[in-house]
C-alpha cells in the first residue's frame, strides 16, 4: 500500500528516474555547449516505468524539429524544447520500440548522408542521366 492507502498497480509508479535523467542531460548539454563531446543515453537499458518515461517525455517537451525516417523500419526523431537534446526512437518489427535514446548533439548522425551512400547515389544518378540521353537506335526508330 502507498502512503495514501491506494494500491500501486503495474507501471503506475513514479520512481524519480525522470528527474535523475534530467540532471544528467542538463550537465551534458552544458558540456556540449562549451565545445565538449556529444553524449547519448540509452533509455532501454534503464529500468523505467511507463510513468517515468511519460514524465521524461513531458519534461523534455517538443522543439522545432521533427523527423520521420524510413530505414530498416520506421524511426521518429525530434529535437526537444532544449536545443541540442534529441529524442530518437527506432521501431523494429511491428510497432515495437527497438531502441530509444536521448542524444545530446547538434544534429544526430543518422540524419547525415554517408559519403559512400552519396558516392553510390552519384554513380546511379549519372548512369540514369546517361541512359536518358542515349540516342534512340536507328533500326528501332525506323518503324516509329
Amino acid at each position: 500500500m502507498t502512503a495514501d492507502g491506494a494500491t500501486p498497480t503495474l507501471y503506475d509508479i513514479s520512481t524519480g528516474m525522470a528527474m535523475s535523467l534530467m540532471q544528467e542531460i542538463a550537465e551534458r548539454l552544458g558540456i556540449l555547449a562549451e565545445g565538449g563531446e556529444p553524449h547519448a543515453i540509452d533509455l532501454l537499458g534503464i529500468p523505467m516505468s511507463k510513468r517515468d518515461r511519460d514524465e521524461l517525455e513531458a519534461m523534455l517537451g517538443r522543439g522545432e524539429v521533427e523527423v520521420t525516417l524510413d530505414v530498416a523500419g520506421a524511426s521518429r526523431l525530434w529535437e526537444t524544447q532544449y536545443s541540442g537534446v534529441w529524442w530518437i526512437r527506432h521501431f523494429g518489427e511491428g510497432e515495437r520500440v527497438a531502441s530509444e535514446r536521448i542524444e545530446i548533439v547538434p544534429v544526430p548522425e543518422i540524419l547525415s548522408a554517408h559519403r559512400l551512400d552519396m558516392a553510390a547515389a552519384a554513380r546511379r544518378l549519372s548512369d540514369e542521366l546517361a541512359q536518358a540521353n542515349e540516342p534512340i537506335p536507328q533500326e528501332e526508330s525506323a518503324h516509329v
Binding site: D42, L44, G45, L69, V71, A72, S75, H90, G92, A98, S99, R101, E109, I110, H114, L116, D117
Partner: peptide, 16 residues
C-alpha cells in the same frame, strides 16, 4: 541498404 540502416542497427546492438 544505406549506411543509415547500418548505423541504426549498430545503435540497436549497442543498446541490447
Amino acid at each position: 541498404i544505406s549506411r543509415r540502416a547500418l548505423l541504426k542497427y549498430a545503435g540497436y546492438l549497442a543498446s541490447v
